[in-house]
C-alpha cells in the first residue's frame, strides 16, 4: 500500500527521538564549551619543544640540527642555528636554536617532525583552542612560546612520555658506560656497550 514506507520511516525517527532521551548511543553529542569529551592519548595538534630542568632556554633538547625543518612537508618550521655552544641543563656545551619559529597557520599537524627528530626534542601538543586576535604575530609561534617543560609532556601523554624518558635514560646510561670504558681501557670485558639501545646512544649524549 502506498504510504507504508513513509510511515515506517516516521517510526524510525520517532524511535530515535524518544530513544535519544534514554539510550546513550543514540545521543552522542556533548555541549561543547561546558562539557568536554576526553581527548585520546594519541591526539595531536601542533608541535612544541621540550625542555628539561628549570630554565626553558638552556634546557631545550633541540640542538638545531634542522632535520625537521628539511622534512616538514609544508615548510612551516624556521630555524637559525647558533654560532656558539652554550651549556645545557646538564652542563654540556651544545648548539642551540637561535631562532625556532613554527607558523601554525601553515602547519598541518602531520607529526613528521616528531618522527624524524633524533633527539626527542619536538612533540605534538594537544591544545586546540588556539583562536588568536592577530594572524601575523600570534600565529607565528616563537621559540619562547613553543618551549614547554617535560612535565607538561608527561601530563598530556603519560605513556608515550614515560617511554621516551626510559629510552633517553637508557641511552644516557649506555653512553656513560661507554665513556667509563673508554676512560679505563684495562677492562676489555666491558668493551661492548650493554643494552639494546646502545647503538642509539650517540645522538642523545653528544
Amino acid at each position: 500500500m502506498i504510504g507504508t514506507g513513509i510511515l515506517k520511516g516516521m517510526g524510525v525517527t520517532a524511535r530515535n527521538f524518544v530513544g535519544s532521551y534514554f539510550e546513550k548511543e543514540r545521543l552522542i553529542t556533548v555541549q561543547y564549551p561546558e562539557e568536554r569529551s576526553p581527548l585520546p592519548e594519541n591526539y595531536r595538534n601542533f608541535p612544541f619543544l621540550i625542555y628539561d630542568g628549570e630554565d626553558p632556554q638552556a634546557g631545550l633538547r633541540c640542538v638545531a640540527c634542522k632535520i625537521c625543518e628539511k622534512e616538514c612537508p609544508p615548510q612551516c618550521i624556521y630555524i637559525v642555528k647558533s654560532d656558539d655552544k652554550k651549556p645545557d641543563y646538564m652542563g654540556k656545551p651544545q648548539f642551540y636554536p637561535k631562532v625556532f619559529d613554527i607558523d601554525i597557520s601553515v602547519c598541518m599537524s602531520c607529526q613528521i617532525c616528531v618522527e624524524v627528530c633524533p633527539f626527542e626534542a619536538i612533540k605534538m601538543d594537544k591544545e586546540f583552542e588556539l583562536s588568536k586576535r592577530e594572524r601575523f604575530n600570534h600565529l607565528l609561534q616563537r621559540k619562547e612560546e613553543l618551549s614547554k617543560p617535560n612535565e607538561y609532556y608527561h601530563g598530556i601523554c603519560p605513556t608515550e612520555a614515560a617511554d621516551v624518558d626510559a629510552k633517553l635514560g637508557a641511552a644516557a646510561e649506555a653512553a656513560a658506560k661507554k665513556k667509563a670504558v673508554a676512560a679505563a681501557p684495562a677492562a676489555p670485558v666491558l668493551a661492548k656497550p650493554t643494552g639494546p639501545t646502545g647503538s642509539t646512544s650517540a645522538p642523545a649524549s653528544s
Binding site: E25, R26, I28, N42, S109, C110, M124
Partner: peptide
C-alpha cells in the same frame, strides 16, 4: 553522521586525528 562519528573517534584514538589521519 552519528555512526560516522563513532568510527572517527576510533581513528582519532589510533591515529591522532579524526580525518587527517596520516
Amino acid at each position: 553522521f552519528r555512526e560516522r562519528e563513532k568510527i572517527l573517534d576510533l581513528f582519532e584514538s589510533l591515529a591522532g586525528s579524526r580525518m587527517m589521519c596520516d
